[in-house]
Each structure stands twice: as C-alpha cells, then as structure tokens.
Amino acid sequence: MPVSMFKLSVPVFIRGLNVLATLLDKAESHAAAKKIPLDDLFNARLAPDMLPLSGQIQRVSDTSKNAIGRLTEVPAPSFPDEEKTFSELRERIAKTIAFLETVKPSDLEKSDTKDVPIAFGKLKFTFTGDDYLLKFALPNFFFHVATTHDILRNQGVAVGKTDYLGPYG
C-alpha cells in the first residue's frame, strides 16, 4: 500500500514542531539555571551569515504551513516574522500546529502529481508534488529543525540526539 502525501507531511511537520517546543523549554531552563539572558539564546546563530534561533523557528513554521498551502487548496496562514520572545515563538509554533491539525487526508489527495513552482533565491524550479515534498520541503524543514538544535547545543544547552528525534509512540 502506498504511503499517502498526508502521512508524509502533516504528522511529520507536527512532530518536528513539537520537538521545537521542547527544545525551547530546555533552552529556557538552561538560561534560568545559568543566569543567561534569554535574548542571548534567542539571537544566537552558528555563523554570522546564518539566521538566529528565532529565524530558524520562523522558517520551520513557514516551511510546514506553506508546503501544505502549495500542495492543497487550503490557504496557509501568514505570520509576520516579528517574534521577540520565547513566548511569542511558542505561540507561533502552536498556531502552526493548529493550522496543520485542520488539514485532512482528503486535502492532499492527488497532490503528488500537482505542479509546484518554487523560486529559491535566483533559482526557479517546478516540482511534482511528491518531489516537492520529498526533495525540497522536508529537507528544508529538517535543516531548520536541526539548525535550531545545533544553535542551542552550541550555546551549552544540554540537548542531544534524542531531543532532536523526539518521543516515539
């Protein structure tokens, strides 16, 4: 039996977003224990030309909701990138999850063959829906989840592989 586009996207995105929420909890606990200003973590980045922690979380949100918007007739909500606190990042994560929870398997039927045009910087592509999800949206999503994890680890937050993978079951 083939795996559905729904199963490959919505539950995966929700799981990753929940992992981010848990990472934020650990970051806040770390900051409190070490008496580090939360802004130091909020604005931390791995390299000067990379987005900070806040930007990574914004991209995870955008990638997941916009992937569904591109693959379905369900309009993705637009969230301005104006978060300034961990609480606001958590709210964005929650709003993204709430949107994803409205998507039904039937919304993604036949989305595997839909043409999905993408402009990424100067590059322009047109993918089939399945190639878009598997070769662009999911790798981009996980890049930003992993980068969030890596920024926190680089800042001394006690997170490891099991925190990145999240709970099973």
Rank of each mutant, 00 (worst) to 15 (best):
A94C: 00
A33F: 00
D62W: 00
V60C: 15
G121I: 03
K34W: 04
S64D: 02
V103I: 15
R15Y: 02
K95R: 14
L17P: 06
E101T: 05
D40A: 14
L133T: 11
Q56P: 07
L165G: 05
P105E: 09
F120C: 10
L23N: 06
L89S: 06
K122N: 14
S87P: 00
V74I: 13
D40E: 10
V159S: 11
F141S: 10
S106M: 09
F136L: 11
T63E: 09
T72D: 09
K65Q: 13
Q58C: 03
L41N: 02
A98M: 08
R70E: 03
S61G: 12
S111L: 01
F125P: 11
E83L: 00
I93F: 09
G166Y: 07
L133V: 14
H149P: 09
V19P: 05
H149S: 03
D112K: 07
R15A: 14
E91H: 04
A98T: 05
S78W: 01
N154I: 03
D25C: 11
S4Q: 13
Y168G: 13
Y168C: 07
S106P: 04
R92F: 01
A21G: 15
S61F: 01
E109C: 06
F120M: 12
Y168S: 15
R92A: 05
K110Y: 09
L23W: 02
D39K: 13
T72S: 14
F127M: 12
E91W: 01
S64T: 02
L17R: 09
L133I: 11
P48I: 09
I68N: 06
K104F: 10
N154G: 14
K35D: 12
S9T: 10
I36L: 15
I97T: 01
T102I: 11
R59I: 09
A158C: 06
F141R: 06
F99A: 01
P139F: 07
Q155P: 01
P2Y: 02
L24A: 07
L46F: 05
D131Y: 08
Y168E: 14
V10E: 10
L24Y: 02
L51D: 06
K26V: 10
A67M: 03
S61K: 08
D107V: 06
E73D: 15
S9N: 11
K114H: 02
P77V: 03
P80Q: 05
Q58T: 01
N18Q: 15
D163G: 08
I93C: 05
L8E: 10
A76C: 04
K26N: 08
P77F: 03
A47I: 04
D40F: 03
A21E: 14
K122P: 13
A158S: 14
L89Y: 03
L24K: 03
V3W: 07
N18H: 15
A31V: 05
V116S: 02
Y132M: 06
L89F: 00
D107F: 02
D25G: 07
L23H: 03
A119G: 13
V19I: 15
T113G: 13
L17S: 10
F79K: 00
Q56K: 01
E83C: 00
K104C: 11
L41R: 04
M50S: 08
F143C: 04
L17N: 04
D107G: 12
R92Y: 00
A32H: 12
V74W: 00
L165D: 10
F6L: 10
